[in-house]
Nucleic acid binder design. Structure first.
Length: 271
DNA sequence: CGAGCAACCTGCATGC
DNA sequence: TGCATGCAGGTTGCTC
């Protein structure tokens, strides 16, 4: 479900609800996520007061004086604000109940997500240490991508989806950005010119920013923290449109697999 | 070290 | 209708 725009939409949605109140209790119904949810989570979080919610790539960090709650939504996860006492469904794995009667509920059918307690301020964790720059920040630019890609033979699409290179660019927006930049997803990363990386960086920033403005992309089940869908799906030029005509040249869009991920592109417009 | 791929898990669409 | 198969927004960690 979530790439950077969906995670950012979630962050903005929960922020006003989790910060002006303290944690009253925690219910862990299913601790078996990507990594086990700590048995101590309840005792460690009770009484905690979150001061802010930050995002690093696709990770959310609910920060407090004592430490931070690191949340990743995996492929199918979501965070929603519901009234305390709302009946829990099959995949509602964790509830964080607040003093003011609201509950932050973590739902994740496939359980690829995680919820980890990181002691200390600022929070340190191996998962965060080796991440590349944020795509919407200024230090993510063409010179950087060009330098990192020299000698690399991986397809450029796989390259920009590598979180050690740049965070937050998932399968949907990698496909979209490469179409917008006119670059074939199969081209070796080391054989993309600086000039074309300039176009790609602009495209990545634009597509992510536009998706955030639209509240994310809802394919089948993404909803924001209020349970409402995102509206970016109607703007997608290639993802999910294999076989349909290219919006620029009308040629049918081609679908291949790269790095095990579905890849859609126009063989006329992308070289 | 880089590249490719299996694995984690459930739900859903498709085809026989 | 039932069953098998393959695919899905991500990431780690294994092989070669």
């Amino acid at each position: 479900m979530p790439e950077l725009p969906e995670v950012e939409t979630t962050r903005r949605g929960i922020l006003p609800h989790v910060c002006d109140t303290a944690v009253a209790s925690v219910i862990v119904r299913q601790p078996r996520l990507r990594w086990p949810v700590s048995r101590e989570l309840s005792s460690v979080l009770s009484g905690a007061h979150f001061t802010t919610v930050n995002r690093r790539g696709k990770y959310l960090l609910l920060q407090s004086k004592k430490g931070s709650l690191l949340v990743h939504l995996g492929m199918s996860g979501s965070l929603r604000i519901v009234p305390a006492g709302t009946a829990a469904g099959k995949h509602d794995h964790v509830d964080i109940n607040f003093d003011d009667g609201k509950t932050l509920r973590f739902t994740d059918p496939r359980r690829f997500g995680c919820m980890l307690w990181l002691p200390g301020d600022p929070p340190g964790h191996a998962l965060l240490d080796s991440l590349g720059p944020e795509p919407l920040e200024e230090d993510f630019d063409a010179d950087y991508l060009f330098a990192r890609s020299r000698g690399r033979r991986v397809p450029v699409k796989t390259f920009i989806m590598d979180s050690h290179i740049v965070v937050g660019v998932g399968n949907i927006y990698a496909n979209e950005a490469l179409f917008a930049a006119g670059i074939s997803p199969r081209r070796a990363a080391g054989r993309v010119s600086l000039e074309r990386y300039r176009k790609l960086v602009v495209a990545i920033k634009q597509v992510l920013q536009q998706a955030i403005s639209a509240g994310g992309t809802t394919l089948r089940d993404f909803t924001n923290s209020e349970g409402k869908p995102g509206y970016f799906k109607q703007s997608l030029a290639v993802y999910g449109r294999a076989g349909e005509p290219c919006r620029r040249c009308q040629n049918p869009l081609r679908e291949i697999r790269l790095g095990g991920r579905s890849t859609v592109y126009c063989s006329q417009c992308q070289k």
